[in-house]
Amino acid sequence: QEPLTSSMLAAAPPQEQKQLLGERLYPLIHSMHSALAGKITGMLLEIDNSELLHMLESPESLHAKVEEAVAVLQAHQAK
């Protein structure tokens, strides 16, 4: 699968852009947190597309943001 680029994204309608990003992010997130992957991906998709593209290219950035999402979810569920 070829890398997702900003020009590929720009050619798609806004809602489709998020779906495209989600399709790339989901398998990566699923390998870290299989049970929460759909929820975490949904949370991350609210971030700007340019930042999401950066995360797809930077495993460290993605990993940090996924861990942040898990912490937010756990704090939310503890309420």
């Binding site: 759909g38 991906t41 991350l44 609210e46 937010v72 979810l73 704090a75």
Partner: peptide, 21 residues
């Protein structure tokens, strides 16, 4: 530092993992 991530965000539904009809 407070996270900007929203725990009430809509869950992502991947096409690739969808059940075939």
């Amino acid at each position: 530092r407070k996270s900007t991530l929203n725990p009430n965000a809509k869950e992502f539904n991947p096409r690739a993992f969808a059940q075939p009809k």
